[in-house]
């Protein structure tokens, strides 16, 4: 029998982090917390960054993502796979963020120092770097000033590179609605940057 035929166990157990998303989701649904943790680690960076940009507050974003992940664990047995797991998780996180925004909690703006973690091309001159940083800060302020629904749609499209269909699935709206929101968001952002033209 070949060394990897069924029934030929190896001394090494399969590493969980090597497993595909469908396997991890199935095991997590069965109550395996280790598989759930692997899933969270795969998505935490992009979801946290999305929450920071949505809420404009790192502490609030951390709380929102943590609450969303715990809620996901509680709701996981009911997850039937109608949507991709990542779409389902994005929906929970964005709902948490929007809920916090709606509650109208007093927001603590990002300290300016935190906003300036700019990744600029290495060949930029000091002057160009400063201009890049200022432009990024201006856009950051413009994004923060967008209405919640426009900001969410724009961020999912531009920062998360989600398709219009995925953005619609995450936000629970129609694709045509999402296209309109993204178009309006772009128009408002472009207007707010008019002085830079």
């Amino acid at each position: 029998m070949n060394a990897v035929d069924i029934g030929s166990p190896t001394a090494t157990r399969r590493v969980l982090t090597d497993l595909g998303e469908a396997v991890l989701v199935a095991r997590a649904r069965d109550g395996d917390p280790r598989c759930f943790e692997v899933l969270l680690r795969r998505h935490q960076q992009s979801l946290y960054a999305l929450a920071v940009r949505l809420l404009d507050d790192r502490i609030e974003a951390q709380d929102a993502v943590q609450d969303a992940f715990i809620l996901a664990w509680r709701k996981l047995p009911a997850f039937r796979g109608e949507a991709k797991f990542s779409t389902w998780l994005y929906r929970i996180v964005t709902n948490q963020c929007l809920s916090r925004l709606r509650r109208g909690r007093q927001q603590q703006p990002l300290p300016e120092r935190e906003k300036q973690h700019l990744v600029a091309p290495e060949d930029l001159s000091p002057q160009a770097y400063v201009e890049h940083a200022a432009l990024a800060a201006a856009l950051s302020a413009a994004v923060a000033a967008l209405p919640d629904d426009l900001r969410l749609a724009w961020l999912l499209r531009e920062a998360e590179h989600r398709s219009y269909e995925e953005v619609a699935a995450i936000t629970g709206t129609r694709v045509s609605t999402i296209r309109g929101r993204i178009a309006r968001a772009r128009a408002r952002l472009a207007d707010s940057l008019a002085e830079w033209r």
Binding site: K115, V119, A136
Partner: peptide, 15 residues
């Protein structure tokens, strides 16, 4: 907006 998006979206936000 396209020019501004690149540095804005490239900002390091680490969980």
């Amino acid at each position: 907006l396209a020019i501004a998006s690149d540095p804005y979206l490239a900002q390091a936000i680490t969980a």
